[in-house]
Computed example of a mutant assay.
Amino acid sequence: MKQVFSFLFIAFLSTNIFAQTTWKADPAHTQVSFDIVHLGIAEIEGQFGEFQGSITASNDDFSKAEYEMEIDVASINTGVERRDGHLKSADFFDVENHPKLIFKSNSSEKIGDSKYKVTGDLTFHGVTKPVTLEVWHRGTIENPQSKDMTSGFAITGTIKRSDFNLGADFPEPMLSDEVNIEVDGEFIKQ
């Protein structure tokens, strides 16, 4: 009897230790945005409207979570149709040849209360580079309407467009080399 109890106890612990939960981005309550400085004097903002994101976690505090994001670059929207068309062209994103922007994490380190430093590979415009992002887990609640468990996250970082050969014919100060990126929204437990 002791052996059966021991086996069941070990099986229970193993299930809890290795259980992973996946959280998917809720497109209706998530924004993927960026900003860049134009002519050294004005910040231009934009968003990507089509994306998929997931967070896979084995801990409730997301301390060792894995993050993935895939963005449809053609969904770029800066509020100016002519500028959006130029950004989709070979001068910048070259959407025809490079339609996706992909991030996949490879490490996550807790740096404070509900805050993490996440490192991973960012791929777009035919280039893959390591980047580090800051993640703030804002909390988890049950959505009163859908009854889904929902977690809020703010994910921010800065990349250099020169690292990805983006807009090489548009040097500083015409466009800043640094681009701030942000994913802010809700992820639903699957």
Rank of each mutant, 00 (worst) to 15 (best):
E96P: 00
I102L: 08
T132V: 13
A42E: 03
A57E: 03
F164L: 04
I71N: 02
G46R: 03
I102N: 05
R82S: 15
Q47T: 14
K110I: 08
A25Q: 02
K160L: 00
H98W: 03
D148Y: 04
T140P: 03
G126R: 12
T15L: 15
D91Y: 05
L166C: 02
Y116L: 12
M69Q: 06
W23I: 04
E81A: 15
R83I: 13
T158I: 12
A19P: 05
I102E: 07
T21W: 04
I36T: 06
I141H: 04
H125D: 00
L13F: 13
A11F: 14
D177E: 14
F62S: 09
D84A: 11
L101D: 01
V179W: 11
H86L: 15
A154L: 12
G46C: 09
T30N: 09
T56K: 10
N97L: 06
G112Y: 11
S75H: 09
T78C: 10
T132E: 14
S63N: 06
F170A: 02
I76L: 08
K117M: 14
N16I: 15
P144W: 14
V73Y: 00
F164D: 03
E81R: 07
G152T: 05
M69W: 07
F103P: 04
R138M: 14
T21S: 13
G152S: 10
T30I: 06
E109M: 08
R82L: 15
T140A: 14
D148F: 08
N59C: 06
W23C: 04
Q52T: 15
T140N: 11
G120H: 08
R83S: 08
W136V: 01
G53I: 03
A65R: 04
G85C: 01
E50T: 13
D177Q: 02
A25P: 09
S107F: 02
H98S: 10
S33K: 12
A154W: 06
R161W: 10
D148H: 01
F164W: 09
F18L: 13
I76Q: 02
F5I: 15
L101A: 11
P173H: 09
D184C: 05
F51P: 13
F51N: 07
V37N: 08
L8K: 01
E172M: 15
V131C: 04
V32C: 10
M174A: 14
A90W: 00
W23F: 10
K115I: 09
N77P: 00
E45H: 14
G40T: 01
Y116E: 07
A74Q: 13
V32W: 01
K104L: 04
F153M: 12
A90K: 01
G85T: 06
S75Y: 09
F7R: 11
Q3I: 13
V179G: 09
F170I: 06
T21H: 10
N97Y: 03
I102S: 10
I159Q: 05
S54L: 03
F51R: 08
V32N: 07
K160G: 00
G40N: 04
F103K: 05
F5P: 00
S105C: 06
G126D: 00
T21R: 02
L101Y: 01
L8W: 01
V131W: 03
S151M: 12
M1N: 12
E43W: 14
E142W: 00
A11D: 09
L122V: 06
I111W: 12
D26I: 05
E96D: 15
